[in-house]
């Protein structure tokens, strides 16, 4: 069975699902961040697969953009996590409840 476009999309879908479920179940900010990275990667896979099967460079360029955005997200996200840890000595998203009371 040769891998077709559908098999790449299926793999991407499975990875996206796992990432999505992970975001809901993880309570650790870094864990959630990593799950989001996984979802971005699943999307990248579809871009590359389509780019291959339709012989178009655009898909790969978008992967490049997604990676740049992910890098920016990592820098700012980890900055926020460190700042949050300095304030609350925890990276648990449930502790981010100062606005509640």
């Amino acid at each position: 069975m040769e891998p077709t476009l559908a098999s790449y999309l299926a793999l991407s879908g499975i990875l996206f699902t796992i990432g999505c479920v992970g975001v809901i179940f993880k309570r650790n900010a870094i864990g959630m961040f990593m799950c989001i990275e996984l979802m971005l990667n699943a999307v990248n896979l579809t871009f590359v697969a389509f780019s291959r099967y339709y012989a178009d460079t655009t898909g790969q360029l978008f992967v490049f953009m997604v990676m740049s955005v992910a890098a920016a997200e990592a820098a700012v996200g980890l900055g926020i996590i460190i700042a949050f840890y300095r304030n609350r000595l925890s990276v648990d998203v449930d502790d981010a409840s100062m606005m509640k009371n």
Partner: peptide
């Protein structure tokens, strides 16, 4: 560039 500046200010 914005991300660099933002993370420096945050951290």
């Amino acid at each position: 560039l914005m991300a660099i500046i933002g993370s420096v200010i945050l951290a």
